[in-house]
Design a protein around this nucleic acid. Structure first.
Lengths: 203, 203
DNA sequence: CGCGTCATGCGAACACTGTACGCAGATCGC
DNA sequence: GCGATCTGCGTACAGTGTTCGCATGACGCG
């Protein structure tokens, strides 16, 4: 059969790891972690589940890829004094997790243990912020881990809460009225802690 | 049939939520999160899976119960200045998570959102440490969340790493030789960050 | 003591999961 | 043009959480 532009219809164009990972992120953002099955993911790419295994070893590897993919959204740039650069990076990481709350659910499983290219790149750049800021060799690493720890911990709790919102279908206003933390308060809480942590790291 | 001590054999003695939760913790500690299925858990209690549903609504509810159960191992006591009491509580929380690394895998799902009795008790006591330490009303809450955030984040990463160790079957020495962090270094890292965070919270 | 009510255990079944295997067809290098 | 390699997929299997209905035992009350 002649392979015209029309026979190879639009959204197929051949499976690839990139396309699979991108579709997985979409699905996770839309429906959460438990909605991600190899079959539903395949359907979205209109294929069958077993085809995915040509490009991805198994579901666990897929999840690692997906996590590293969203780590790519974390921005860490040197601009001005180390404190403000680090604070911006911290805010960017938090924003990423809140955009993709399912990340919180898998962080404990993948953790920062196996590092994909995006994560290791961001770690290196963050580390550089500290060394450039005057932290002596080994201490830069400790300082970096301290703020990463703070941001991850704080944000995991937030994301779990956001997912709870989504699951129960309530919107935030409603729960806020019942005394649960609001977005504005969570922002303030995060900023408070961040400021203190950074202050503690300064000599 | 006469119900002698021998006919109702030892480890049965009737199912109960407590017994189920205790067995689940054992199983999780021994074989990790993915080894926990309703059927394997039932087998350990020698029963069948469906019997568990008389005492537990869901697997999800079971997990909430199990998480709150281990939160009970966290010790928070007031002794001396707030800094050292808070530091001890932080160390206790970390030790608990490292004893039960699977907690890290589910923290993102349950989070600190739905709080069981143990968790809410520990939170209250921790908060009291700050208010007694002189933190004005609202700030005590912010400070508490800051150190909780730090401990959770740092520890989740550690636990993920510990689970990686267990999964790959390697012992720590071997990996350490390849440049991965050792237990001693992780202890030091945690203490460094904890100290800085507490310092940042002091005025 | 006896009878009814209720709690508990469980067998069977359902919809769904991740994944191994082997076959077909397309694609690409020579 | 031909052979090898790559890609998609149908089928199948073991395992999952959970529901439903039945049976059997314990317990309260007359």
């Amino acid at each position: 059969m002649v392979s015209s532009v029309w026979t190879r219809e639009r959204p197929r164009a051949g499976l690839s790891q990139d396309r699979i990972v991108a579709a997985a992120v979409e699905l996770l953002d839309a429906d959460g972690l438990e909605a991600l099955s190899m079959r539903t993911l395949a359907a979205r790419l209109d294929t069958k589940a077993t085809s995915l295994y040509r490009h991805v070893a198994n579901k666990d590897e897929l999840i690692e890829l997906v996590v590293d993919e969203v780590y790519g959204e974390m921005e860490v740039v040197a601009s001005g004094p180390w404190r403000s650069s680090v604070a911006d990076a911290a805010r960017s990481l938090r924003a990423m997790v809140l955009r993709h709350p399912w990340v919180a659910s898998v962080l404990g499983q993948v953790g920062l243990a196996e590092l994909g290219p995006n994560l290791s790149d961001r770690s290196a750049r963050l580390l550089a912020l500290f060394t450039d800021g005057g932290f002596p060799g080994e201490e830069a690493d400790l300082a970096m881990k301290t703020v990463l720890g703070y941001v991850v911990g704080m944000t995991v709790s937030e994301a779990a809460y956001v997912q709870l919102l989504a699951r129960t279908g309530q919107d935030e206003e409603e729960l806020t009225a019942h005394g649960v933390t609001s977005k504005a308060l969570r922002d303030k809480t995060f900023e408070y802690g961040l400021e203190r942590v950074l202050k503690g790291l300064g000599d």
